[in-house]
Amino acid sequence: MLDEPYRWVEAIRNRREYLEDQLKSASPVVACGYENGLLLLTTTPGQRKLFEIYNQVAFAAIGHPADIEKLRKAIIDIAHVEAFNFSARDVSLQRLVNFGLGPLMKTAFDEIFRSPYIARVLVAELDPRESRETFYTIDADGSFGNTAGAAVLGGTAQSADAALARQRKEVADSSGGDLADIPLEQALQQAMECWAVARLTAAAGEENGEIDAGRIKACIQEMGGGGQRVEAAVLDRSLPKKTKFRLLSAEELETALAPYHP
């Protein structure tokens, strides 16, 4: 099969379609900055989806749970070996993605006789001193990119773009362009609405309906009824520990997301 170039291209195309199909119904993950660091938000039927990788690095993924675990283990191993061989300050997201996760997922994607990682990954890094956050997203084919201020993992590329555009607009409207100044509660609400935009866009598929406040609120309420719960975590610069990662408690989420309850 590989000796015929056309077949190879066709095989890759099939893989892409297969991956799109597997990932399209996943619950989106939204990441954005707030006054003390950065916030990650998604929904889940039960198992955890937001993880700590290193002191200042967090990880989220959509896709097959076993593949997500493999990728999570891979990046944790790389980060800790780096910390051991060099120092804690040498663990950088750019290196973890460029030389770690990116090539790993690309290799798996290229081996067309085996299954690729059925996953899209979002990793975020906090600068412990300065108000600066870095976000990377890595697609199942290993292509990665970083975005400033916010990042979204969506079931489809289109839905992620729509949510990211909305997040940018919200932030610009609410804080005059300063990305880092929103309190946590407000950041949670914005992230929740972005999540709904990504969800609605992915569900709509090709037809591009207008997404208004009413549909967003309905989408968030529907999620609660559908046995899903919100999961959110922060990398908080103000935590007096080496580790800046913290999962938000049910009470914190309850208070912040009260406006969306029926």
Partner: peptide
Amino acid sequence: ARMLEISFQHYRRSQL
């Protein structure tokens, strides 16, 4: 001491 510290961190993060 260094190996010990990183071992505990690695365990906590990978095994949750």
